[in-house]
């Protein structure tokens, strides 16, 4: 087994795009172009079984990197290997070892039933009929597909379709699963259901996951490591607990009080929300011990309930981007 299942070295992709700012060219002259670096000198590696979130704002280079790792796009310079193969050289061979889910694009055949799509995928991936049936049955059970397995794919709801798409991507038991916005457009319940199913399956098959998503819940519930990129460059590569520990020194304290209008004052505590019998405090734990703030709260109020939470991941990411922007400006 390959220890590092994905390796990326100095991966760079430069696109030549039309330069709209340049002077307008004539009908028959070549239009002015400029180079755009979508991904620049990207380096990282992922071990077998890791679940990594690959995140960044729109245009950061996530999809371009993902395309290169699937073999759909060759880099300008640099190299990468997935399952021991160079993706853009051995695309067909690699395809048998990876699974792909693009949230906005289905891999099912719209005019076939889900059942027929799975049967066809079994043939495409050259899986023995018996093995394909056993794996299909398992996926039907785990993802709860029984009710709509005989339906035409085009008649499925978005949530049902996504469950089928992810199940279909796991039919050939890939070593690596690339997920691009897998929960986009789903409601809260459908998202939670999908994440649960996915976690169960990837744990069982020891599948390595590389996920891109703008939904921080996807990252928190599925991944254990985060790679943050912007302008095609890696900004951060750390584990999720380390991200919480190192990049935020705030805790959120939510209090339910007996007092109708609770008031609180502390130099290192920001009152985030103040309402009827409710108080939300943002505590700077680098400046003040959390215990002392809690003790002060117990002294000041008659508490019905208290909750201590880390800052949401979304806020942490925003903070990191703010810091990077400031650093760049400096």
């Amino acid at each position: 087994m390959v220890e590092e299942i994905i390796q990326v070295q100095d991966l760079t992709r430069i696109f030549r795009v039309r330069d709209k700012a340049a002077a307008k060219s004539g009908w028959f002259s070549k239009p002015a172009t400029k180079e755009l670096t979508a991904v620049g000198n990207l380096n990282f590696s992922i071990k077998t079984g890791e679940k990594v979130a690959f995140i960044g704002p729109n245009g950061a280079g996530k999809s371009t990197t993902l395309k290169m790792l699937c073999g759909l796009l060759a880099p300008s310079t640099g190299t990468a290997s997935v399952c021991g193969l160079v993706p853009w050289v051995a695309t067909q061979e690699l395809a048998a070892k990876i699974g792909l889910v693009f949230g906005q694009r289905s891999h099912l055949w719209p005019n076939l039933t889900v059942s027929d799509s799975f049967a066809l995928l079994g043939k495409i991936y050259d899986i023995d009929d018996g093995e394909a049936k056993a794996q299909t049955d398992k996926l039907i059970e785990v993802f709860g597909l029984t009710k709509f397995f005989g339906q035409y794919a085009r008649t499925l709801s978005l949530g049902q379709r996504m469950r089928c798409d992810i199940a279909a991507a796991l039919l050939h038991q890939p070593s690596v699963l690339f997920l691009d916005e897998p929960t986009i457009g789903l409601d809260v319940t459908a998202k939670a259901l999908l994440r649960d199913h996915l976690n169960r399956l990837v744990q069982e098959f020891e599948t390595t996951v590389l996920l891109t998503s703008h939904d921080t819940d996807d990252i928190e519930k599925i991944c254990d490591r985060v790679i943050l990129i912007d302008h095609g460059q890696k900004l951060l590569d750390t584990t999720l607990p380390a991200l919480h520990r190192d990049y935020t020194h705030y805790k959120t304290l939510t209090l339910a009080t007996e007092e109708a209008c609770p008031l609180f004052d502390h130099p290192h505590v920001v009152v985030e929300e103040q309402g009827d019998h409710r108080l939300v405090l943002k505590v700077d734990v680098k400046q003040v011990r959390l215990e002392s703030v809690v003790a002060q709260c117990l002294e000041c109020f008659k508490l019905h309930d208290i909750a201590i939470e880390d800052l949401p991941l979304e806020e942490i990411i925003k903070t990191i981007y703010r810091q990077m922007k400031l650093a760049r400006g400096a």
């Binding site: 759909l72 067909q92 395809a95 990876i98 694009r105 495409i124 050259d126």
Partner: peptide, 12 residues
């Protein structure tokens, strides 16, 4: 880019 779905299969 929907041709991608043909390129990511282990077949011609």
């Amino acid at each position: 880019d929907s041709i991608d779905s043909f390129l990511t299969r282990p077949r011609k």
